[in-house]
Structures are given as C-alpha cells and as structure tokens.
Design a protein around this nucleic acid. Structure first.
Lengths: 110, 110
DNA sequence: CCGTTTCGTAAGCCATGACTTACCGTAAGG
DNA sequence: CCTTACGGTAAGTCATGGCTTACGAAACGG
C-alpha cells in the first residue's frame, strides 16, 4: 500500500483513535466502539477503510471479528519520511554549488 | 507542532505535491504554481496551511516570497510512527504472557 | 509615475467523506 | 426454535475544506 493511502487514512481523528485503540492488542468491534464518541457502524466503516489500507487485519472468531494492528502498513509511510532526510544532504550540496557561482539572474528554478 | 497536524496537512494530494516540489530547494510561489493542476491562489492557500503546520518556511525577497522545506516539521510524525515499533515488542510480551496462562474467559480486553 | 509582476485574502461554489438510523445476515444459547 | 449478541451494509444528511474568480497591496522597471 502506498504511503499516500496511509497518510489519507490516518488523517481522520476518529479513525486514528480506532487505530491507536489497537495498540494494546487485538480487539472485537463492540469493544472498540465502547468508549468512542461515535456509533458502532461508524467504527465498522473506519475499520473497513483501515483494513483496505493494510493498516489492520481481521480474523473471525465465532460471531465476532477480531481486529489487530498491521504495523507493516506503516512501513511505506516511514520510508517516505526517511527519504526527506536522505536528500537533505543532497539539497545542501546543490545549494552550496549554486552559491559558489552566485548565479543570481536565473535563480528562480523552473 | 503535533504529529496530528502534519498528518492532516499532508493528507491532501495537491498540498503534498506543493510540499514535494520544495524538495529540490527553495522556490517562489509563481514557480511552484507553474506545472501544477490548480490556480496560483490555491497554491498560496496550501502554502499558508503548510507554513502554519511548520512544514515550510517563508522568506521575503523583494516582491517574492521564497518558500523552503522545514524538515523538522516532520520530526514529530516520524517519532509517532517509530513509537509503534517500540511497543511492538511490548505487545508481543503481553500476548505471550496471556497465552501462557491461557486466560480464555475475559480475553476480550476492556 | 504608471504599468507589470508577484502574491495574499475574501467570497462563494461544490464535491468529498464522516456520521446517523435502519436493516439484514450469522452465531450462540436458553 | 426463538431470542439475543455481534457486526457489516445501505441510504440519506450535513459539515468540512479545496477550488475558483475577483480584488487589493507591495516591489520593480521603463
């Protein structure tokens, strides 16, 4: 799953709350919904989105669906963030070069 | 700035595009807007949001405002992501304990 | 000085998506 | 069986927020 998906999905506060609720460990839907400011169907909808994004996984246990965290779903987002630090040095180098030949006239880029 | 802010702000595709545009280096507004699917005012609005979130910074240079990346703005989000890996071991340990005394009756949590 | 470039802000429109209630299956249990 | 717990899905409402056009203000250039 692309980092864009994780970003979009985790942007919603309620959905993030659902997600964080699963840090403690696997949990059935009704238990997640309890202590949450929204209705149970709303939680179900959030869980579906989280599952489609690969951020949680679901297993059936009789009548209940037990949801649990999928930390690998965060991997791509983490990598994306890391990539910014990677090219920090690169950007610095480029800017240093530019400064050297103090090109002022066409410095706007693009 | 809290990680929630970075998450919310970077969730929008267009705004993310603006943000990524600055990876190459500082850039005035009109240059960012060029080659973007939206109008210049839209870009300005995105830049304001990004600035308020501490993800970019702005410096005046004559009539133009030069925007540049602020990688520190991503730090909290990175830490938040990292924290999930931190408690992965912890959760594993807890679950292991639970399995040991095979507590079945009150396993639902909460 | 007047026109042009650069940019921010205001107002208004409209699509997206989060939430609700209502309903329908399935499993457990008397 | 019939009832109750559990949970997914549908339909409809409504607020959030991203986009546009229009305008105003500051610097630059002839």
């Amino acid at each position: 799953m692309a980092y864009e998906t994780a970003l979009t999905v985790l942007a919603d506060p309620t959905r993030r709350q659902v997600f964080e609720r699963l840090r403690h460990g696997p949990c059935p839907v009704h238990a997640i919904a309890k202590g949450m400011p929204v209705s149970r169907p709303a939680v179900s909808q959030h869980l579906k989105v989280l599952k489609d994004a690969g951020l949680v996984e679901e297993r059936s246990e009789g009548a209940r669906r037990i949801y649990s965290l999928r930390r690998e779903g965060l991997a791509e987002l983490r990598d994306w963030l890391d990539s910014f630090w990677d090219d920090a040095l690169l950007a610095f180098k480029i800017e240093a070069e530019r400064t050297h030949r103090h090109a002022k006239g066409q410095g706007d880029g693009e």
